[in-house]
Structures are given as C-alpha cells and as structure tokens.
C-alpha cells in the first residue's frame, strides 16, 4: 500500500532529527513538573489529597496535558514539514509515483504515532511517579490514568490535522507556529464546549467524555480530508 511505503520512508527521514527526543521529552517534562510540585510541598499535598492520592496526582497533571498536547502537535507538525521544506524536497518527493494523499496521510500517521508514544510514556511516567511517592499500588486507578493520557489526545486531533496542513502548505512556519501557540494557551480556559480548543480538557473531565472524544476524532478526520484534497490539487513550487 502506498501509504505504508511513504510511512516507512518518513520514518527514515526523521532519523537523527531529534523528533524522538521531543516525543520523550514532553511526558518527562510533565512528570518533572509534578516531581517538583510534590517534592516542594509533599506534606501539604499528601494531606490535601489524603482521600484519593492517585486522583490528586491526576488532577495536578490534568492542567498541563492539553496545552502540552497542542504545543507538541504544533512543533511536531512544523518539524515534520520542515524536513521537506528545508531543501525544497517536495518537488522531488511529489514527482515520484505516489499519490499526494498518501504523502499527506503518511505525515499524519507519523505524527499521530509519535504523539501516541508520548501519551504511552505519560502513562508509564504517572505510574512510576505515583509509586515513587509512596501511593498504594492497589489503589491505582488504571483506567483513569489511561484516560488522562489518551482521551485529551484523541480530542485534540483537529489541531494535529490543521497544523500539519498549515505547516505543509506554508513554507514560512511563523504563521502555523503562532496559531498553534495561541490555541495551546486557549486550551487552559474552558471557552465554550462548542469550540474544539475546549475538547481536550473536557474529554477527561466531562461530563460526556465520549462525545468530546468522538467530536475530536470526527473533526480531525474532516480537516485531514479537506487538507488532503487541497494538498493533492495545489501547485508545487
């Protein structure tokens, strides 16, 4: 399948570009913040969350997950697109016998897989941190930990599709990066549940988590499709 071929080619191209480092750094950073948080005021927080220690940790993490996700999507999209922009490799790549939809789809798949790895690492990090802080393993809310790591991610798919499209369309990355950072900040404030910027947060806090996850996946797919069609038709400079 053409998509798989382009995907394998893209995996080779990101070799040595520091993208995997970024993928690891993001969850490590989130966990490090909580190490600091719990390290500085261990006694206070242990008392505050005495009822539900794991839940307290997840709530503390929650605030940073959507913003980190959207920021990560912005940076990853830009870095991925830049690999081709850098020496104008688009003309070489798109003159190969491969449909442009496959090229676009493969970039999305690479970004989605890398972010998925980030989320998985966040699960591991949360568990390790909780145990290190002396929380009881028997109380561990496994489903909630997975929900915190993955539901906001799926709800943020519209942003991944949008940023990837923008980054691949514009050679100048200032526009998509600015939009990405502004939107990332907006995820912190629950503007309106009708706006996608609120979905990553609401996908975990609810109510109606599944609606926000579904809406995110659907909107992401729609934007991805529109982006693909545009990318397939545009002239390559």
């Amino acid at each position: 399948m053409m998509l798989a071929k382009a995907f394998r080619s893209d995996l080779l191209k990101i070799k040595g570009k520091g993208l995997w480092l970024l993928v690891c750094l993001a969850p490590v950073g989130l966990i490090a913040l909580q190490v600091l948080n719990f390290g500085l005021r261990y006694d206070y927080l242990m008392k505050l969350y005495a009822e539900d220690l794991w839940g307290g940790l997840l709530d503390s993490l929650l605030m940073f997950v959507p913003i980190a996700l959207v920021m990560g999507m912005t940076i990853l999209s830009s870095l991925l697109a830049n690999i081709e922009h850098y020496t104008s490799s688009w003309k070489q790549l798109l003159a190969l016998p491969i449909p442009r939809t496959a090229v676009f789809g493969a970039k999305f798949a690479v970004a989605a897989v890398m972010l998925g790895v980030s989320c998985a690492l966040l699960v591991v990090g949360t568990v390790v941190l909780g145990l290190a802080l002396g929380f009881r393993a028997a109380d561990m809310p496994v489903a909630d930990i997975f929900a915190l790591s993955f539901l906001p991610y799926f709800a943020a798919w519209p942003f991944l599709a949008l940023f990837l499209w923008l980054c691949m369309t514009f050679r100048n990355q200032a526009v998509p990066l600015t939009i990405g950072i502004v939107l990332a900040v907006f995820t912190l404030f629950g503007v309106s549940e009708w706006l996608p910027v609120s979905w990553p947060m609401l996908a975990y806090t609810g109510p109606g988590q599944e609606v926000f996850v579904g809406a995110g996946l659907l909107a992401g797919a729609v934007i991805l499709l529109v982006g693909m069609v545009h990318f397939s038709r545009k002239d390559v400079a």
Partner: peptide, 11 residues
C-alpha cells in the same frame, strides 16, 4: 531532477 537538488542533509 528539478532545478537545484533536493536532499535530506542529515542523512
């Protein structure tokens, strides 16, 4: 080969 060469410099 279109205009100046395209390549991935880090590879």
């Amino acid at each position: 080969l279109v205009e100046y060469p395209s390549y991935y410099g880090h590879l």
